[in-house]
């Protein structure tokens, strides 16, 4: 870990001013991604701006029923928040499936939105990586790519987005509040992360110096059940090989509304719109779920070691939908 300057900020405008829209300055809250990568010499900030003292640690229900989450709310506090457990169980489940108790105690909401890929070539400062060093090539493309993405990949990058929280947010729908030198703006969560395309180094839509101040969740789907299923080699403390987050509302055995997002298989938190269309107004049956799973993976592109993720993701989808429907039945036995 090389040398860098450090400064605390007391409020948002001071944080933004201190940052100065300088590419070499980074905000730090939980630090679980940033310090990991600084130690690996993958990130080399000249200065850190500590935002832990900013008044961004609250979770509040807005008048319109949406839930507004401050940037520095920890994963643990968010997962166990009564409103989250009651109205957004998918988010609670996804958060608790990620990392470890200690990391969840440190990691923050905005930090998790900004989580970096676990691609081993990205994390090795001496390997070729277009995401870390534009134009240097991609060692993963023909390398050990068992953990890599099959959806949203490009010729430049196949790195997987690792977050569980973001999968839940992609399914639920959310709005990010961003504040920077040019003021405050909002952006739909699903527009925030970019596909790698030709420029994998541009991971998101943040402008220089901008800070994520809040994540506001859409109002939950009424009467829906939810399930987050994470498939991985060991039982805990590991990133997903494939995960599926499902929110399903069922009426008279028919799917009224479905939200589905995938993790562990895509270059960004992956909302599976095609699958949702395949589910809409269809009977809540395994056959329907399987059709949705087919639709979700129809554009998947495998590489040498990760072709297994395509059937695995389908399995995660089918099971998550089944469990979400069960959850909906349990929550609404009259339907």
């Amino acid at each position: 870990m090389r040398s860098f300057a450090y400064r605390t900020a007391e409020d948002i405008s001071q944080a933004v001013t201190t940052h100065g829209a300088d590419d070499h300055v980074a905000y730090v809250a939980g630090g679980t991604t940033l310090l990991d990568l600084v130690k690996l010499d993958v990130m080399r900030p000249s200065q850190l701006v500590d935002i832990n003292r900013l008044p961004l640690s609250e979770v509040e229900t807005l008048d319109d029923g949406r839930l507004r989450i401050g940037a520095t709310v920890t994963n643990t506090d968010l997962a166990h928040h009564p409103e989250v457990k009651a109205r957004y169980p998918l988010l609670s489940q996804a958060l608790l499936s990620g990392a470890s108790t200690q990391l969840r105690n440190m990691a923050t909401t905005a930090g998790n939105v900004m989580q970096r890929t676990r691609c081993p070539y990205y994390r090795d400062a001496s390997a070729a990586c277009n995401r870390r060093e534009p134009g240097s090539g991609c060692d993963a493309m023909h390398g050990i790519n068992r953990m890599h993405a099959v959806l949203g990949v490009s010729d430049a990058c196949i790195a997987t987005h690792p977050s569980d929280m973001c999968v839940a947010m992609a399914a639920i729908g959310a709005t990010l509040t961003l504040e920077g030198p040019e003021g405050v703006r909002e952006m739909a969560f699903n527009d925030f992360h970019r596909l790698p395309g030709e420029q994998p180094e541009k991971e998101h839509e943040l402008r220089p110096g901008e800070l994520i101040t809040h994540v506001t969740l859409d109002t939950p789907v009424e009467g829906a059940g939810a399930h987050y299923l994470k498939l991985r080699d060991r039982a805990s403390y590991e990133f997903a090989l494939a995960s599926a987050g499902a929110v399903v509302a069922v009426e008279d055995g028919m799917i009224r509304e479905a939200r589905l997002a995938l993790g562990g298989v895509a270059t960004k938190p992956w909302r599976a719109h095609e699958a949702e269309q395949a589910l809409h107004d269809q009977p809540a049956s395994i056959e329907t779920f399987e059709m949705a799973a087919e639709a979700a993976l129809q554009d998947a592109v495998p590489h040498e070691h990760n072709a297994f993720k395509i059937p695995l993701a389908r399995q995660a989808i089918v099971r998550a939908l089944r469990e979400a429907c069960k959850d909906a039945e349990n929550a609404n036995p009259q339907r």
Binding site: G31, T32, L35, D36, L40, D50, T76, L103, M106
Partner: peptide, 26 residues
Amino acid sequence: DHGQCGACTVHVDGKAVNSCLRLAVM
């Protein structure tokens, strides 16, 4: 040294955290 094993767990303000991923100045 990367938050991957838990050997460095301490309590900060009563919460268990990985002390390897927290700067002393924080």
